[in-house]
Design a protein around this nucleic acid. Sequence first.
RNA 1: UCCUGUUUAGCUCAGUCGGUAGAGCGGGUGGCUGUUAACCACUAGGUCGGCGGUUCAAGUCCGUCAACAGGAGCCA
Length: 458
Amino acid sequence: MKQNISQILQANAPIDVEAEGWIATVRTSKNVTFLALGDGSCAAHLQIVIGENTIERTLLSQLGVGAAIRCTGTLVPSLAAGQRVELQAQRIDLIGAVDPDYPLQKKRHSFEFLRTIAHLRPRTRTFGAVFRVRHALQMAIHRFFDDRGFIQVHTPIITTADCEGAGQMFHVTTLDLDAPPRANGAVDYAQDFFKQKALLTVSGQLEAEVFALAFKNVYTFGPTFRAENSNTARHAAEFWMVEPEMAFCDLAGDMALAEAFMRRIISDVLTRCEADMDFFDQWIEKGLVQRLEKVVQANFAHMTYTEAISALQQSNESFAYPVSWGLDLQSEHERWLTEKHVGRPVFITDYPRGIKAFYMRLSDDERTVAAMDLLVPGVGEIIGGSQREERREQLQQQLHFFKLNPADYDWYLDLRRFGGVPHAGFGLGFERALMYITGMQNIRDVIPFARTPGHASF
RNA sequence: UCCUGUUUAGCUCAGUCGGUAGAGCGGGUGGCUGUUAACCACUAGGUCGGCGGUUCAAGUCCGUCAACAGGAGCCA
């Protein structure tokens, strides 16, 4: 198998090699030309040295930034500082020429401009690092669960239940939208492909619970969809979510898993993507690596929602949003708690029933539910989870409390009749975790081809 | 969706008090004994986001639409 540039850069010089890739920069002087060649396999480029009269002058003039080439020659220790080895070219083949209007230049571009050329931006250093780390983070997540005996469940992407009553969902239909069949004045979904209204999933959690009650420890990791008209740096219409679910597990066990999970995936990426993480530390967010190392080392703090509210009320900070028991915590509150009050990651637990989802387990005080959010310095909430309501009667009460139709949840209620057990889980937005780990500030820049309101190009 | 801001060369930006447009990079040409986003010289490149208004005169002031960004809400 051919060697990629990552492997070539680690080879013992001198040795004859063949390198393939795209030209990142060109520097010429009278007797020598230098190319920086990249193939996405690592953050570093391979320096190619072209001596006088090595190749045809017409070929040399075609070696512009962006061109794809194959270079054969001898890998030798570099004569200059800046790289350990370099490739002395003996032969260069132009595999893919580049037109002079190639938009990427050897200078800084704005992320806004690069979003408009999503078909070319993966070749830049920043996006090379982003998508290598995205892959590494994904693998770290799978390894974490696999090491603990978790089974991954491929929960459905097309669903017929508005699972959590959360937000707008995308419809999936084969009906003619210009003239849909009607019955009793409404669209007649009985004539649709699934013979009922179908939607794109917003969460695999409810289906994951089914598998947790058969395989004990499971997780989902797949795409989810929200049709919300949210136009922010942290929202996308299509994103990936990680949702572990554990049977015979309470909220404390849930938090213990979440803490071990965060530590492990961060340390995995730090050790496996050292060069890319150094790149982010230098160019995207100063101090990033140190911030993450502190998260890996720190014991996460714990406090209840009620304790958090009183801490906020006694803080003498002036918040834009009011603080009072029963109101949800705003971003500014979460940031203050994790950054200033405790100065490390913190779990907030036992939220008021009314501001959390119907499936969360009602506590004995009947005012709070067994919910937890993990807040981390820099971003605020990164994980949300809960112990699920395993008692059938209480779950029915919760459905009534949230004005949901029990008939839509018959199979979910059934789980509480046939060997139901205490169980718990949490959800992690994959892209938000990636933003946290890379320091990238816009979710559109950690997704290969982002889907947001008004944008589904590429 | 709301608030605020931005829109000038292929890219990143400057443009003062209203008087018909500038730089760096990139492209082209030439130079340079090994460069590190190389460097030096010359050169081409513009419907100043669209439409409308004020004015003798608009990149500049006003209105409007659009795109983009930041913040908010919603959330992951």
